[in-house]
Design a binder for these strands. Structure first.
Lengths: 223, 223
DNA sequence: CTCTCATTGATTGTATACAATAATAAATCT
DNA sequence: AGATTTATTATTGTATACAATCAATGAGAG
């Protein structure tokens, strides 16, 4: 894996915590590379908004509750649009892919256990599989570009750790509703279903952020 | 100016034409720098989607007519949302800024002459001033982030060269309508007005792309 | 004469060295 | 002691050298 993806993953899974300062040399040591490729990775992560520039060097970005709200609102907007466009432009192959993703989701739910790292990761994977199929069906690469930047945010990723079986089953139901609307080429219903689906995710995450007292995600930006 | 902004501008104004291959060494020579900072700039521009990776090195991205359509659709969506949020969250200072931007626009129109490089640039500047004020009034930095990536596309920038006085006056009228809706805190009217405004821009650009025979923007991707 | 393979040349990927600058620690003065 | 200046250290910014890889050219075989 290259430096960019390594560091990105480390941030997303929380290995590098928000506010943590990243120095080129320590990263270079950890990845057994020279500073040159590290610097390039850092520049890209800065473009992604996952790290913020300091006077000297960079630190892992801290997303506040307000950030998460706004990011979910954007996701709602973009993925809602994505679903509506998918309903217009989808082919039979797209439908097949979405169906396959939902079958995988079902299977993943059968093996699901709360707090089991592996089954959670599997859920995250098949969930992404479905959403990705929708975006691809929309036939708009630029939309894909923006959605991918909005979804990668650490908290969005980690939200799967906070779901329980009932909520995940509800998610699958939404996927089925969206699939039906896309199959019937009903853009508005597809959009609304996706909108509702992601909005539920937003509520879910926001509730958790309220609960957590010692919330290291909400630390003030280390200046 | 640093390497990133230099190359970006060169691409946006068309100095580096679509499909043109960029080698690190030639850029290093042109900017009188070593390859190291050039490489970092290239990685960022790749994130922006302004250049595309080749098997070896990179080339300036070529935006097809389909790309432009999709980009404008996204802009419509994002800036429409931006206007609606501005209507909700605006302060008096935001209104003042938007008013100032429109006054500047008026002034710029008085000095406007078709094909006059300077007055065109001035129009582009004050237009951006207004749109930027709206985004800032929406109080959503992430929205700002995405809109800025969607607006920078070369063709969007150059579209100002294709306007005439009547069309620019119409643009100013739209700005006024948007401002009114934002002032009255009417999100839906603000959204629709912005939507219509940008959609006109889209039509305008698409018509021009139809007209232009020897359209170097539409060259096939140099592989 | 054309196709294949090898050799050459150009360009990128990585490492390292040095210079510039910021952060930190020490020392001096009031 | 507290503040201010100076010295030291840490970290980044840039340049350059070398290794790895891809593209292009040419030589030889069919």
């Amino acid at each position: 894996m290259d430096a960019y993806n390594y560091i990105k993953d480390a941030i997303v899974i929380g290995k590098y915590e928000p506010g943590m300062r990243l120095t080129e040399e320590s990263l270079a040591n950890e990845l057994q590379l020279s500073r040159t490729p590290i610097r390039e990775a850092i520049k890209q992560l800065e473009s992604d908004g996952l790290i913020v520039p300091l006077k000297r060097g960079v630190s892992v970005r801290n997303f506040t509750k307000e950030d998460i709200k706004q990011i979910y609102d954007l996701r709602t907007l973009l993925e809602g649009y994505s679903a509506s466009q998918a309903a217009i432009n989808r082919t039979e192959e797209d439908i097949t892919e979405m169906e396959a993703a939902n079958v995988s989701f079902e299977k993943a739910l059968e093996n699901y256990e709360e707090n089991d790292m592996n089954s959670i990761k599997e859920i995250a994977r098949v969930n992404h599989q479905f959403h990705d199929a929708v975006v691809r069906a929309s036939r708009n690469p630029h939309l894909h570009f923006h959605i991918s930047k909005v979804v990668v945010v650490p908290l969005v990723y980690r939200s799967f750790y906070w779901y329980n079986l009932t909520q995940l089953q509800r998610s699958l139901e939404f996927h089925r509703t969206i699939l039906t609307a896309v199959r019937r080429q009903d853009p508005e219903r597809a959009r609304i279903a996706m909108h509702e689906h992601i909005y539920q995710g937003r509520d879910h995450v926001m509730n958790h952020l309220d609960d957590i007292k010692d919330n290291h995600f909400l630390k003030e930006d280390a200046k």
